[in-house]
Every structure is written in structure tokens, then in C-alpha cells.
Design a protein around this nucleic acid. Sequence first.
DNA 1: TTGCTGCATGGTT
DNA 2: GAACCATGCAGCA
Length: 904
Amino acid sequence: MESKVCMNEQCGVSLPSSVECKKGWRLRSGELASLCDSCGTVYEQLVFCDTFHSKDTGWRECKSCGKLLHCGCIASISLLELLDSGGVKCISCSKSHGLCSTSSREKCKDSGVSAANGVDEKRFSNVGNQSSISLINKMKFAECCDDAGSDDHTLLPPSQMDDAIETINQMKAEETFHPAGEFGSSFLSFSGQSSIQSTQKVKPSQYMENVHGSPVRTNLTISLSATSGNTDALPTAGVEERQLGRKISSFQQGSKSRHLLPKPPKSILAAGLETNASTTSQIRVARPPVEGRIKNQLLPRYWPRITDQELQQISGDSNSTVVPLFEKVLSASDAGRIGRLVLPKACAEAYFPPISQPEGLPLRIQDVKGKEWVFQFRFWPNNNSRMYVLEGVTPCIQSMQLQAGDTVTFSRMDPEGKLLMGFRKASNALMVQDKHLPSMPNGAFSSEPFFLPVNENLHAVNSHSGFLQSFKGRDFPLSALSKHFNGGDFGWPLSESNVGKTVDGPMSPSTLVPERKRSRNIGSKNKRLLIDSQDALEVKLSWEELQDMLRPPSGIEPSTVTIEDFELEEYEQAPVLGKKSIFTVLQSGEQEQWVQCDSCLKWRRLPADVLLPPKWTCQDNTWNLNRASCSVPDELSPQELENLLQMSKELEKKRLGAGLRSGNVHESSNPDALGNSTAIGGNISEVGGTSVATTTKHPRHRPGCSCIVCIQPPSGKGKHKPTCTCNVCMTVKRRFKTLMMRKKKRQSEREAEIAQRNQFVWERKEEGEAESIGMQLATPIDSLEDQRRLGSELQIISQNNTQSVEIGNNGKLDLNSHPDRENLQMKSSRISMVSLLQEASLPLETYLKQNGLTSLVSDQQASSGSHVLQPANRDSENLSHGVQEPEDGSEELSETDQSGKDPS
DNA sequence: TTGCTGCATGGTT
DNA sequence: GAACCATGCAGCA
């Protein structure tokens, strides 16, 4: 034994020289490397402690017997709460372990706390790591809790824990993982039957590296409930989203903190999209470099995220081992026609042959189809450094049909050392997810079982309005979300910048920049995906659709948790995907929904508040027994059905279009959302006496719901007195006032313009050019004439573009509505101004009537027949009332902006 | 005029 | 502030 002080000068922890347990350090020569528990300094020789420092290691000692307890949950490593009973409780998963028998563990002679020597053999469980080498398989992994129920907590094999730790560390590095305590210095404890006689503290990665001396293909399963295989009892670990709620989940509340971890939506898992947790090798986990020369140097963004399944597909039946090296998200220039793929310097120098001349050398790389490509691997001198590129990649990129945003993965086949090139398509990731597609048959890395690619699809993820819909009307800070759902391989990267971009509508500057510049912004600097807007549209829609289909498990009521002052629903069980339906509203205001039988495909009418299961047939129609058989004819005539479906489809399109330009989070406060919803209402048609519209009504809005959405009466219901000062009335009045002011302003501007033109004409006339000038003055001078002329334009536009949501069936303008700006920007601005002028010239009462706001007019003045059709969703009603207060007066601004675009 | 090459520039980390 | 790297761009064929 020798005494030693931590090599880190700033640490200076004294490593005791003898059995004396001083801070737990003791040095043994000839052992494996380890880290200083205080500073993380790596020692060539094993420095370990017989004792377990519970707070640091995740193990807690039983108060009574000193036995070490651990729940086996990764996140619990730093989240174990010591119970008065002597047991521990995992703050993360809430699993607890009670008192242990004292017979099986000896206490450390030095410190008085227990050591692992003498751990009963029966306390061990086999590692069972299929991909680790034999030595690991021979290891016994201490499962220190033999209490009843402890079987639920099979500890991870070292290799898996290693990866889990690395991943979590990565998340920590990206500030996406916020355990209550520190994790980085944690160690696992395991005893073995090998020459390691006593329980040692060895960081698994080090252990693996030292034992194997070469890259190891590890099983990267992060499933912590490996013995369960029951998705209902999915891992309770910190890396697992414990309760989904509908959009967001949280850990069981700990004593101090609540954690939100990025995770694929449990709904996906619950919907059966997940493979068996116990057999998963499809989980996409970042694999940190396994080779020493680049270890700790490579940015996590380049860590290969390749699944075991993909590895298996590459290696096939051969005995070769595929070592994932690195990956890169293709930038615009990478995927461009130049044919130069910029390689991360660290990767190029670590994994590719060393080159001393800028010309480099040709490099053979085999793609996933087995085709060999020869690229020129070279570098450019750059600022006393080098910039490595692969030249001539265009044919390969095109062959794999890759584009910016897709990911290329580089691997190496050992022992041959052959370089392999795979890819992962960004654009189809969600499609795979949505459509339950299996992996690519050719073994390409394009399968995305249920994870979004980490760097890809940020836009798509952030566009997942449903995901954020829980915060409707609550101004949930994006920062709070992004902080918790950010990056990491557990699937839900968010960053504020991304969110901000997503919130941008099509009219935002970011979307109006030239294509070239946009691609640059999206594809490169910000590491954001170059995703075609239409792709994003589809992605978003699919998520929205998914969101609408989410149903809480039967009989499960959500509990409400508060995170940073925002209430979230939390479900004990994952929600399921319900069947999609079409909501309608009768003239009476009664809502109902239409659902298609999965068996006979007939449409049946159900009460609006019915939450449908994923599968629904006529036999399930307990609400109308007369229609509870597939043999019963359809309730709707073919024409009615066609109308129903057509309207549903069209409105879905509008919703989709509006959704792109509306902020997904601040839906309630976004003027675009107003427009969207109202547009829906304005396009309702009647089907057999029933007005039909799809709805964005969230399943959470059920009868009895008292949220701001649901408490609003449907249009036409409930009268507001003229003196009413509610949000609705005030908003309407304010808008009217704005209209009037703008009208006056425009009139004065127009008069000034006319005077100016007249003066100009007069001057030119004096110069004898009056004739030609007269031609130029074809623009109307008289305001009434102006209106008439534009009115005719309006008609033309209205005829040519039935998609315009500005114009309702009665030709009235919906002031709330914002048309699809990409298509209708110019047209709508014209339409808007004409109509605005017309509207502004009307008395307030008339305006209110024409806009279906008779509820705001006094009883005597209101016309009960002024509005028949009602939007099916209360959101729309609410929004169409203008109940959503702009946060900063943006409402008036937006209207003013519109006026500013008046071409006249 | 077009495409390629090599380097420079500047944004991001 | 340095390193990295995405991309711009001048020069050339």
C-alpha cells in the first residue's frame, strides 16, 4: 500500500495509505484505473474505497443494518431518499426498499459502514449482457436488495449502465438532464468471481475499456425494466418518462425537485409502437467514442446514434464487428452539388488515415448496399489548422437520396478495418414513427423506430403543437419547456431558438428570406434541419392528429402537477390513441361526433363527449342501440357523407395551413390562431340539417371542464349587455374603434394623395403632358369608386380562390382571420381593406350582427337568426369572439399592418 | 457562361 | 479568445 494524494492539484484529496478509511480512498497497485471521486482525476491504478459513499454513488445504507440499497434505477443513483425505516426510496421511480437482514453483510472495520465483501451469493444476479465479452458475463452484479419486490429492479449490466451514464452525461452537458444530485462521479458497484476479490468502485466505461482493450460492441438497451417487458410497467427510471400525462410528464415529485426528461412520447409506446422493452436494440442511443485517442474530444453531436439492430444489419452474418465511429448531419453544402463533405476534424484525424499533404488520399468507403465508393480524403489548411473534406461524395449522396438534414454515419468493420457509410433520413423519421414502419429492408440507417433523430426534425418536433397544447392560454414559458425537453438521445430536442423559429409564421422574416439564405440558416449554422415546409406541414399535422387521438386510459383521471407555476396533467398510466372522429354541431348548438366503424366503415353518430377507443365498431355503439349493428344502414345519405368528409378534409387543410403560421404554444394569444379558428367557423356547411366541421377540440375539454375555452358560451348563446365590459365585448368594441380610426386615417391620407396627384397633374398639364399623365391616373380618385373597383376585384378573387377563409358564405369578412399568407398575402390584403372599409362604414350594431356577434347587441336589437352555423369546437367559438386578449396590443397592430399592405 | 478548386470569411461553440 | 466549420467567392479552366 502506498499513500497518495490526488493528482489534481486543485483537488488534493488525500488518498489514505492504509486500511484507515479516510474519505474512503485506498490505493491498490496493479488494479484497474479509476477516478478520483472528488475531482474525477483518472488514475492509472485503481483507487477505490471499501465503503460506499452513498450520496455519491447512489447507494444508500440501511440505517439499521448498513446494508447497501439501490433501486436499480439509473436516475435514482443520485435520487435515493433514505427512509426512516432504514430503507430507501427512489425519488425518481418511487420504488422503495425496506429493511434488510443484517446477516449478509459485514461492516467496514474502518468506517463502520458496510462493505460488499461477503455479499451473499444469492444476492447476485447474472449480468446477462449479450454483447459483452465473456469476462463480463462471468461477473456477478450485486443486487443488494433482496426484499420482496426487488426483482423489479434488476440492475443494469455494466455495459448498459455505461452507455446510460454516458448518455445522461451528454444530456447533462447539453443541460437537458437535471437530476437532483450529481451523477458524473457516480460509480457502480459490482463484485466478481474473478481476481477482483472485493467490491470495487469502477466506472463501467473504464472497466470495459481496460478489460477489453478494444472497442466493444455494447448492448445499448436503456430499458431499465429489462425483466418486465410490460409496457404498462415501463421503466420507472429517471431516463424514463414516468407518467406521460397527455403531453408532458414528470417524475414523481421528489422532496425538492421535479424533473422533466426528454423522452419519446409514451403515447407512442403505449400505442404499441414500441418493441418489447426487454429485447430492444432499436433504441437510438448516442455512442461515445470508444477509442482512446478521441475519447472526451468528440462533440456529442458526432457520436454515432446507431441502433444495435442497424449494427446487426450491417454486419450481417459475418463475424466482423461493426464499430460505429461518428456521424454527421449533412449541411447544405455537404449535400450540395459541390460534392464536398466537410468532416469533423477530430473524427477525420481519429478514424481516417493520417494525411500530411493537402491532396490527401483516396479512401474506399462501402455504403449500406455494399457498394464501394472512392472519395478523396483531403484537407485544406485553415487558420493554422486543417479542414478535412471528403471530395466526390455527390454520387454517393445522390445514390442514397440524401439531402441536407439527413445524417451520414461512418462505421468501421473490424478486424478488416473497412470503412462503412450509412445514413439516416431525417424526413422520414416521423413518417416511420407515425406509420409504424419497420426498419429499412436494405439495412440503411433510415429506420427510426420511435425516436426522432436527435439533430433532425427539430422543426418538426417543435411544431408539434399538440405536444404543447396543454399550455394553451397559460403562456407557458418556452424556456421552461426547452430546458427540460432539450436534446439528448432520449428523443426530444428543443431549444429556444428552434421554438422561436417554429413559432414564426410564414409571414415572419425567417420565412420570407430567399431560398438560398433560408437553406443556409436552416441547414447549417444552427444545426437545424433543412426540412421542406411541406414536410414540416405533414409532420405537424400528423402530430396534431395524433394529439387529437390521445385518450386517457379508461377510468384514469389525471392528477395535476405544478411545474414552475404551470399546471400540467399527469396520468398514472400512459394514454392511448383513440379513434379519430368528426365533430359537428347542430343548429341547436348541440354537439355530436361522427365516427366510422372499423368493421363496416359506416359512420355513426355519437355524443360529442364520448372518448373513443383506438378501435370502434358498430357493436360498441351503446349510445344508440338501433345503430349498434353493422347491418344497420348508414345514418347519412351518400351526399351528406361526402359533404361531411369533404368539409372535414378541407377544414383540416385550413387548420394545417393556419397552424403553420400560428405559434403552436401561444395558440390562444396568437392572432393567427384567432383567424384560424374563425375560418373554421366560417366554413361550416350544413349536412342534412347539421352543420359540420372538424374540430381541434382537445379531448381534455370535456363536459364540466371549466377552462377558459369551455366556459365560453357558443356563439349566439348568452347575451351580453351593451354595457358589458367582458373581454369579448371589450375586444369587439376596441376593434370597431380601431376600424373607425383607420378609416379616418385612410380617408385623410387618400385626400392628401389626391391633392398631391391633382397638383402633379396640373403641373404636368402645364407642361403639355397632361394627356399621357391622364392615362397614368387610371387609379381611382374617388373613394367610392375605389371601393367599387376593388369590390369587383374582390369578387374575382373570391371566385378564383374558394380557399380564401376571409370570405364567408355570405361574403362577410372575418376580421380575425389571417389567410394563408404564402398564397394569399396580396389578395387578402386587398380583400381585407375593401371589406374593412365597408365594415368600418357600418354602425357598430350592424357590424356585430354581420359578424355573428349578436350576443353583444342588446336583446331588442339582436337578430336571433343572424347566425345559424356554429363552429363545432369551443376553441373556435371562443376565439371567434375575440376573447383572447392580445398580450401587447398586437391585435390592433396586426390590423394596422394589414392596412399598411393595402396596394391602393 | 459554367463548373471546379482552393482559400477566406465569419458565425457558432 | 480560440477552434471549428459552413459557406462564400475569387481565380481559373
